[in-house]
Each structure stands twice: as structure tokens, then as C-alpha cells.
Design a protein around this nucleic acid. Structure first.
Lengths: 340, 340
DNA sequence: TTGAAAGCGCTAACAC
DNA sequence: GTGTTAGCGCTTTCAA
């Protein structure tokens, strides 16, 4: 039912080649012929078959993004914003975006990467939520397949990435709390296997040390980035005596869970105890109390990551293949005021 | 560099056809031949070119999802969860998911739909956030292109959809507040152009009337689904005298903004004033106070929508092409207790 | 200015 | 069991 070049050609009694060129706007087609071709194409409702074109051109004009999702109730505002960023950049540069979702480190995820690097699937991949010795990056590197990472990993070769400087971010945050007079600062860290956890943890240790503040092992509790785990971690932290006076959370979602738990325990967050997050998701400005956090420009990071990938798949060297952005400290009521 | 069937064939001195069949596991290939084919394929690192296969088979095994996004800071947890739902269902049934993002009603969105219905792009589309006389649905219907909608619209023909019963949901919620003794109940409605706003508004009117409660026009303020707009709308509502004693918000995000604003005005939400949302995003359980809301199983809706679409693109009639789900009322502290 | 022909990589009907 | 042939729809040399 859908019209092809062949249909137009036979309708007009000319060759497929000429039709193809006429439609493509080549100037070696007589103006009158082109005119007739375009009219016929329009009347037949011709639409090029993108698959055929791609097979011929040997490129898909498609980018892939394999989302690591945890469990069924996967609802992290981070991802909507990131997808909007890469999606808009891709659309502007006329690329399609293929998205798939898999549990991290699962067999399915491996297969998804194996498939994605087949010819004809996508021209390049975006990788996020890096892990230690990230096998995805290892694989892509070995296959010599184009990719850009949001995040870094500890593998002994170079690869293009955009990342936030977690160490610097935590430095700002810990220093802020230390300046307010806090001495016992807990840390609800993100899953240890994620690279950004390590940077944030490192920043925490470094800045505590720089302020001559000791760190008790019980002050560090691991969560899984959800509100629920933040609440559970807070429960553990509060049981440790002498109690911490401030708690830094590895992301805003956990911070919200932690705040909720503290409030249920009768504490007034921002007065009895200080809490801070990481990410500055929109909700953090509207929580009660509003959340002190580190702002990351997720949308822009998405755009930048995508733009870099498009450069790479087109054989252009990215201007800067190792982008490191420092998060901005956003002070709100949850970290309270000086307790000196 | 990548090996093709041709490479394997010439390596082995046999025909491409035999290689193709050997790899596909047809049983009309000698076991020994198949063996050799597979070994050579493995050693050459053969991976089928998906584009060529799709061109031949005349199907893309890909589904499309065009996200309506508003502004750069687009960060709605609803979408992560929905994408996880359709993504997982698609993956299980071996479909790819093509995602693009465009501002609703924009020229780009129109073009995206026009492109998506070209042959070879995707086999079917998922449409969400329906609007009045939704031009997307009109277009897809006219083109006779396979699609499934999450939501409904007011067009005079049938189409497959999954939707929440917004009228029934609001009935539960308004009744809950009326039962608590509230008589002046405000409504921060979602954008009027969205169909679900109309259902929710209708449910609000109907249930107010059923309880013999009058509705003042000033009690209805329109927001844009973001926290910010919820806060602004609340500010307007609070200025109206006599003051409403309860406020229903068209989604949880606006409810959080509204709560924040009320608190800044010195009100204790859940005591001085009741607030409720719609969606039950994970954050609503952890807000302060926790939010009374209507639960929608977004993830399952995503899966169901996607499964229905896959049925349709395969020419199977969906079991039930018009699924209407009633949201569940989740009562939390934000709606307080009886004020009788 | 136009057309014939080859080819992108794969599948499948049909013949041997 | 295996090969020949045609074809999916398009682009692009090369000749005319």
C-alpha cells in the first residue's frame, strides 16, 4: 500500500534513479522532471523507507541508551530529565534514540549490550551509572564501539566521558556543615559498587580529615538510592550514640526518606539535626524543610553527553573528551544554621 | 571489518543461503555443515546485520514512544516509571523502543509523528497525555497506523487504550474529604487541554454536587503539573475568603508545591488545611506530611499498554481494547482527620 | 539530463 | 542437503 520509488517511476515512465535524485533535490535533474516527480510523490503519499536508506548508507542515525533500572517501582526523576536532555539533543541533530531498560549487571543487560554493538542496531551508545571495573565500558572498548559515558570508572584506558566532580561536591557540602559547627557527620552512601559513591565517599573522608574531624565507621550506612532505603539508613544512624548532628545523603531521594524517618522519631530537621542531599531534583526545593543539596545540571549533562557521542560517531574528535563539572552547593533550611 | 554471511560462505566455499539456514537452525542443513558454519561464524565474530534482516522481513520490531516534555527542567518521576514499564515489556517480547521528546503541540512533535508513521521506522506507537480532539490520535487513525493510547480523547471513533478512571478516582477523594466534614474544597487542576484534567474536574464537580456542596469558581485554579505551579496556585487559593479547608491537586507534584506554600504561610497541613494529590509517586509517602493521594499503577499501565500494542502490530486482537482502571485511595496525614 | 546496473546484507521460494 | 535466483527499497557510480 505504501508507495515506493518504483511506483513513482513506473507511474511517470522514468527510471528509479531519476526519481531518487529528483526527490533528493540534486540539481542534475530537469526542473520540469523534478516538478512532476514531486507532484506524483505527493499524490501517491510517498514516504521513503528509512530501513532501506539506512542499509544502503550503512548507518542507523540512531543512538542507544540502556537504562539501569532497579525493581518494578522504578521512579527516579533523574532519568526523566536525563532522557529529555539526550532526547532533545539527538532530535536537534536528527538522530533517533533507542532506549532499553535492564537491571544492572543482569544477564539481560549483557545481552542488550551485545545486541546493541551489532551492526545496524545503533551508531553509538550512552552509558550511565558507572560501576567498578565497569564491564559495559570494557566491552565497548574492546569492540571499539562508539560510546560516551556519564560517569567514570577505574579501567586502565581512556574513554570519552562527562562527569560530575563528586569529590569537589562533597568537599563543598562537608565544609559547609563543618563551618556550621558540626563534628559528627554521618553519610548515607549510595551503593558501593557505583563509582559515584566512591567519589562522594572520598570527598567526605578527605574533607572530614581536612577539618580534623574523626569518622566513626558506624556513621557510614549504605542505601540503594530510594526513599525507603534512606529512611532505613536514618533509623540505623539515629541509634548510634553519641548521635550524629548532621547526615549527608548520597542523593536527594534518600535524603527525603531520611528526613521523613527523623521526623517520625520526633526530630526537627534543620534544628535538631542537619540533613543534606545530592542532585537537587526539583522536589528538593519543595520538601519540608527544603533540602540543602548539590545541584547537578542533569539536563545539560544529557545534552552534552549526547552531543559528544554524535561528534564521535561522525568521526569528529570532541572538543573536550573528559568533561568534569563541579556541582553547586544549594543551601536550604534542612542544614539549619550554626550550632556553635 | 564486520563479518557477513558472504564472508562465512566464501571462507567455507559454500553458498550464502546455506550459511543463512545453518545459522538460523533450520534442520535441512547437514549437521556437519552446520557445525562448520557455526564455528566459522564464531571465529569471524559474525553478527547479523539487523537492518538487512528488517528490510527483508518488512518489520522493524521496534515500538515508538514520543514523550511530551515541557521546558528544559523536565523531571517528572511519572515518566521514568512509565518508560520502565513499556521498556521491560518490550524487551521481554523482543521489541526495541524508540523514544523521542518534544513539546506538546509543537511543530516538531507533528513532524515526529509524521516521520514515525513512515514505513520502516517503527511498527507501532504509544501515545500518552491525551488532549482534547487529540491531533496525534486523529493522525494515526487516519493513517491506519498501529497505536495504543494511555488516556482517552473526545474523537468520534474507537481506538485501543488503557486509562485510569479519573472520575471514579476523584469521587473517592472528594467523598473522603466530604466525609471528614470539609465543605469548601478547592481544586488545583492540571492544564485544561489535557483530557485527564477534564475527567478529574468532572469527578470533582459531580461528587461535590452529590454531597450538596457548592463550588465557587475561585476555588478552581489551573496549574501546569509542576511543583512551582502548585505553589503559585495555592497562593491564589489561600487569598480567597472564606478560605477553603481542603485542596485537591491534579497531581502529586503540584500537591507538594502547594503544601510547601501553605507551610510558608504558616498553615499546618493536615490540621489547618487538608491537601491531597493524584498519582501516588514514591515521594508522596515521604513528604511532610505524607500525602493523601490516588494510586495509579504506572508501571503496570506501561506494561499493559505496551503488551496491547504488540498484540496489535502482530494482528492479534487485544483481549480488551478499552481498559479502564480505578485508582486506589491512599489516605495519609495530609488530609488530616475529621473536622466535624 | 537520464538510465542501467550494482550493491547494502539478508531471507525464502524453488530447483537440483 | 545445498545452490540459484530474486527481491526487500534505496543510493550511487558509471555510461549514454
Amino acid at each position: 500500500m505504501a508507495a515506493t520509488l518504483k511506483d513513482i517511476a513506473s507511474e511517470l515512465g522514468i527510471s528509479i534513479t531519476t526519481v531518487s535524485r529528483g526527490l533528493a533535490g540534486y540539481d542534475d535533474v530537469a526542473a520540469e522532471t523534478r516538478q512532476r516527480i514531486q507532484e506524483t510523490a505527493a499524490s501517491l503519499g510517498y514516504k521513503p523507507n528509512i530501513l532501506a536508506r539506512r542499509l544502503q548508507k550503512q548507518r542507523t542515525d540512531t543512538l542507544g541508551f540502556i537504562m539501569p533500572t532497579f525493581g518494578p517501582r522504578f521512579s527516579d526523576p533523574f532519568f526523566s530529565e536525563f532522557i529529555a536532555g539526550i532526547g532533545n539533543e539527538a532530535a536537534e541533530q536528527e538522530y533517533d534514540l533507542l532506549v532499553s531498560t535492564h537491571a544492572p549487571e543482569s544477564e539481560q543487560e549483557k545481552q542488550a549490550y551485545a545486541r546493541a554493538t551489532q551492526r545496524g542496531w545503533v551508531d553509538g551508545l550512552i552509558v550511565i551509572r558507572t560501576r567498578e571495573n565497569d564491564s559495559r565500558i570494557q566491552h565497548l572498548h574492546e569492540q571499539n564501539f562508539p560510546f560516551v559515558v556519564f560517569g567514570r570508572t577505574n579501567l586502565p584506558f581512556d574513554y570519552p566521558y562527562v562527569d560530575e566532580d563528586g569529590v569537589a561536591g562533597m568537599r563543598l557540602l562537608v565544609q559547609h556543615l563543618a563551618d556550621l559547627g558540626h563534628q559528627r557527620i554521618g553519610f548515607i552512601m549510595p551503593p558501593a559498587g557505583l563509582m559515584f559513591s566512591q567519589y562522594r565517599l572520598q570527598g567526605y573522608y578527605e574533607t572530614m580529615a581536612a577539618n580534623n574531624l574523626p569518622v566513626a565507621p558506624e556513621w557510614i550506612v549504605e542505601g540503594d538510592l530510594t526513599q525507603r532505603s534512606g529512611a532505613e539508613a536514618a533509623e540505623h544512624l539515629l541509634a548510634v550514640q553519641p548521635r550524629v548532628t548532621a547526615v549527608i545523603c548520597g542523593n536527594d531521594l534518600m535524603a527525603m526518606g531520611a528526613i521523613n524517618q527523623m521526623q517520625q522519631n520526633g526530630l526537627t530537621v534543620g534544628i535538631d539535626i542537619a540533613v543534606a542531599g545530592f542532585d537537587d531534583i526539583p522536589a528538593s526545593a519543595y520538601s519540608n524543610p527544603p533540602l540543602t543539596t548539590l545541584h547537578q545540571p542533569i539536563y545539560d549533562i544529557g545534552r552534552q553527553t549526547c552531543a559528544m557521542l554524535i561528534d564521535i560517531v561522525n568521526g569528529r574528535a570532541p572538543e573536550n573528551p573528559s568533561v568534569l563539572l563541579t556541582p553547586t552547593l544549594i543551601v536550604r533550611a534542612s542544614s539549619g544554621s550554626s550550632i556553635l
